[in-house]
Every structure is written in C-alpha cells, then in structure tokens.
Design a binder for these strands. Sequence first.
DNA 1: CCCTGATTCGC
DNA 2: GCGAATCAGG
Length: 177
Amino acid sequence: MDTILSWTDERVTLLRQLWEDGQSASKIAAQLGGVTRNAVIGKVHRLGLSGRVLKPVEDATAARRKPAQEVEIETAIAVVEVEAPEPVAILSHRLAPDFPVPAAKPEPVALAASQRVTIMDLRESMCRWPIGDPTTPEFGFCGARSITGLPYCTHHAQIAYQPAAERKRDRRVAGFR
DNA sequence: CCCTGATTCGC
DNA sequence: GCGAATCAGG
C-alpha cells in the first residue's frame, strides 16, 4: 500500500484541472481529500499555476497585496454583479447540476436520523446528501453545514468525491477527522 | 463570521 | 518540496 497520499501524478493532474476550471482552493482540497486549502494553494504556486484567469472578485483579492516584487497586475476588468437568487429549497439536482449526486441512498435512516432535515428545511448552506427512502415520509437530507459551493458537508463530500485512483483500491470510507 | 488567494518559512 | 501560519482583503 502506498500509504501517504502525496502529490501523485493523478492528484496533480486533477488539481490542475480543477484549478484551471476556476474551482477555489478549498473546494479542490475537499475533493482531493487529505489536504488543506493551504496545501493546494502552495502546490498551485509551486506548479506556477497561479494567476489563472480569474473572475473579477477573485482577481481583486489577488491584486490587493503588493508583494516584495511589484506584481503590477493592471486589470481593467468590468465588475459584474452576479447575484444568483437562491430559491429556498429545491432538489439537489437543480442546485448542483454539475456535481455528482449519489444514487439514492447510502446510509440507513437510523444512522443519521438525528440530523436529517426535510426538503422544506433545506437551506443553501446545508448538506444535500439524501438520507432514507425518497418514497417515504422519513426521507430527508443530511442538513449539516455544507462546504460553501458544494452540495455536501465535509463528511459526505468525501464519499461523493473519492478520487478515481483511490476509489479503485478503495480506502477511506466515511469520515475520518 | 463566512470566504478568497498570497506569502513566508520551518521542516 | 511541502504546507501551517499568517496576512490582506471581500
């Protein structure tokens, strides 16, 4: 077993894809698993991937600091107000069309009954991992604090986003930490 | 308080 | 090379 998950070719490749795809460091870290956003950012810099085409908001963040070397980033980017009105409760598919959605249900209702919330109580910031049988009244969602930008909490994100390489040999199941 | 990326620097 | 701590800002 090649324990110690490090920056293998697979992970670096995935990092590159996600980063260039505009994903934030924290989201990438969550999907890779085993690393923090700091680790992701550090790696991005070592790979020379920083300075990607950013969205106005993020670019402003990057430009604020004036490092030892004057990285004069003169950007005359129009600030676009992107206000996405978020309906209260909707199906996870609608909220996160491009995110993998677990086939109906992995966990026994009893196991997470304490946190389960109904669709009516689901909020944007809550984990949408389905719990229970959708055809029954007990059906609900995890409801824990979700990773901003992702539909699941850290626990379920790790189940939903297992890297292909590791999925093969399996390994980590549910939450650690 | 939530989050963003950037940089520093001990390991 | 790695990433926690810290910074600077939204």
